[in-house]
């Protein structure tokens, strides 16, 4: 899609810095990246992540409880998939051809669709798709989709909207 980047607007960003817009290579919409190296979901990382977000459900830490609930092993909290999705997004953010200044990237939106919970023992491969690149004010908005599979099974789709601040951004935080 067309995404004019030639005319830089100037303004004061949310971060209070005076900047000129220059966000991202618009030709990247529709692009996909090669599969990531497998991410091995481990019970220790699940426990660590669950504790960090305050999720006390025993299915994260107690294999017997997880099995009683119908799972093969302990399962990850719903947002654990960000660990893998951010590896996928990293391919785009660090791609020199994309022209993204990673210090200007903030997280605008996030969505996870789970076909089943990530489970200890899963070897997860992610494939990153750049679904949309658009200009909004002086910022660029990039929507990425990471399809996470275990073998042939699609287990999770993680969709992120990244805001690449150009000017006058008033939202996003991480």
């Amino acid at each position: 899609m067309a995404c004019p980047t030639g005319r830089a607007r100037r303004g004061v960003s949310y971060w209070g810095t005076r900047v000129a817009s220059m966000p991202v290579n618009a030709d990247f919409a529709g692009r996909s990246y090669p599969p990531t190296a497998p991410y091995a979901v481990g019970s220790a990382k699940i426990r660590e992540f669950a504790e960090a977000v305050g999720s006390t459900d025993p299915v994260h830490v107690d294999r017997a409880a997880a099995r009683a609930a119908g799972y093969l092993d302990v399962i990850a909290p719903p947002t654990f998939a960000v660990l893998i999705a951010q590896q996928c997004d990293g391919q785009l953010i660090t791609d020199p051809e994309a022209g993204i200044d990673f210090t200007r990237v903030v997280h605008g939106e996030q969505k996870f669709v789970h076909h089943r919970p990530l489970t200890a023992g899963d070897e997860v491969v992610g494939v990153l798709h750049v679904d949309r690149v658009r200009q909004a004010g002086g910022n660029a908005m990039v929507t990425t989709r990471s399809e996470l599979t275990v073998g042939d099974e699609l287990v999770c789709t993680a969709t992120s909207t990244l805001v690449i601040r150009g000017a006058e951004d008033d939202g996003g935080d991480a």
């Binding site: 977000v53 459900d57 299915v59 719903p78």
Partner: peptide
């Protein structure tokens, strides 16, 4: 932001009683 997202959903998982029952979550 992902901390807030991840901790906020515990309101849902504690209500439903099984953290594996979340099929979609967006913000």
């Amino acid at each position: 932001g992902m901390f807030t997202m991840g901790s906020a959903v515990t309101v849902v998982t504690e209500w439903v009683g099984d953290a594996g029952r979340v099929t979609s979550y967006s913000t």
